[in-house]
Design a protein around this nucleic acid. Structure first.
Lengths: 247, 247
DNA sequence: AACCATTCAGGTACCATGTACGCAAATGGA
DNA sequence: TCCATTTGCGTACATGGTACCTGAATGGTT
């Protein structure tokens, strides 16, 4: 068909499980995706090239195209494989705040374990099965609250936006610490990168300066900081909906 | 110097305004950046290659490297050029809600005018002068409210996260409408893309289904929808801070 | 058992891209 | 007039995605 490229990878299932004639496949989407994830975890997505992945599997680059239409589709598969690691209860517990906190922590852990995940997720709006599963759980947390579906979608969006941007921020610190060779502890205390220092010293942006210099949460451990921000989001949701306020 | 690559472009000012010997430069960073923005607006960032930009200027690709260290730095320059289009009052008006609404609308307009902007901004945390200016205005909106600087930073982050993700969503619709060739009006009414339709029909994710099928805001004009979401964020902030509630 | 349509493996090749290097041209001070 | 300095830019290379093609494997059919 001509519009193969226009439709998502989730509509083109693996050809496996066929019983006709022809040589048996020696690899699988999952195997290829796992190799790609392994490389991306260790050396970044840009290192997960077709040749490199194939090399990892001991084959040639073009063999991969029997399993994946385009490299971009492999990104979708990688995202979904990473999302599959998020472990959640089968259904909501009735404690919306507890459920969303659990979810946020799982996403954070997975995002830090696969530093490319959030960047890919943001750049390509994909809807793989595991992403849908996780999203469904998030929506389900508001079950029984009598909220409008648009409100629920909005709240889940707020939460997702926070979690993703917090992870990006955290990864940014790690990256900078790695590049400058400073350990995160020292870095957190008195380092800010030469450019930010220059901006601060120029005094041109006084409120920005305060946000850098007078911050109290900046000295917290990353998990603590994440939790603070998360609590703010959940507080905001609770504040908007009388029925959600703890009695 | 060896660590040129490690430091930001904002620390390497253009060599201009020199009075020594040597051939005069025939181009400028701004000129090059404008050409890159023009191409990216019309054909996407991936079309703004060094050769293509140079072609636009009637020169060779390598000439650009006299003005910009690496292509990535050009992205930072493009971001800042786009941000420079955001027009804001000199200082806060005292009406925090009005100021932030104005800001959000400006950012949305600019993000839609330059469909690559938010994607670049998200993928590379850059701090060019105009971004700092805009950020400072956002922080300033809370001047005089007596809020902790960490709270202010948190609220501005919430707002930014919402605005960015709303713009991404909106651009996604436009993109899909363009690709499928359907006009956005029809699309909005009854189209959802073959894959989403399949997911919906599978019935595997009932809450996701409701969010797609039973949504009321989905039928609003994009600006209206943006405004609704924005109001929710501002309501949330107001709900968290007693002193911000309208009397 | 022989044959054949079908499917996979993967090499070769092409094109696009970022950019290192080098040299010629331009420029203004000595 | 000469020369150190700076720009303009062609050439060249490494790396990447992927179209195409040949050959090998496989299982149903005759």
């Amino acid at each position: 068909m001509a519009d193969e490229a226009a439709t998502s990878i989730w509509m083109q299932p693996e050809t496996h499980e066929r019983s006709g004639p022809g040589r048996r496949p020696g690899y699988s989407r999952e195997q290829i995706t796992r190799a790609a994830v392994r490389i991306a975890d260790a050396e970044g997505v840009e290192a997960a090239t077709m040749r490199r992945i194939a090399g990892e599997l001991g084959t040639g680059a073009m063999s991969l195209y029997r399993y994946v239409p385009r490299r971009d589709d492999l990104f979708d598969l990688m995202i979904d494989l990473a999302m599959s690691e998020i472990e959640l209860p089968d259904g909501p517990s009735g404690d919306w705040r507890g459920d969303l906190t659990l979810l946020a922590r799982q996403v954070r852990a997975t995002g830090l374990r696969h530093p490319w995940l959030i960047a890919l997720l943001t750049s390509r709006p994909t809807l793989g099965p595991h992403l849908l599963r996780v999203h469904e759980f998030a929506l389900g947390a508001f079950d029984g609250t009598g909220l409008d579906i648009d409100d629920v979608t909005g709240f889940v969006g707020m939460l997702d936006d926070y979690v993703h941007s917090a992870i990006r921020r955290e990864l940014g610190w790690l990256e900078e610490a790695r590049r400058t060779g400073l350990d995160p502890e020292r870095w957190k205390r008195d380092y800010m990168g030469p450019y930010v220092r220059q901006v601060v010293e120029s005094g041109a942006f006084p409120l920005f300066n305060r946000s850098v210099l007078d911050s109290r949460t900046a000295h917290l451990a990353p998990e603590e900081r994440f939790r603070h921000g998360l609590d703010r989001i959940l507080d905001a949701i609770a504040a908007l909906v009388p029925s959600l306020r703890p009695r």
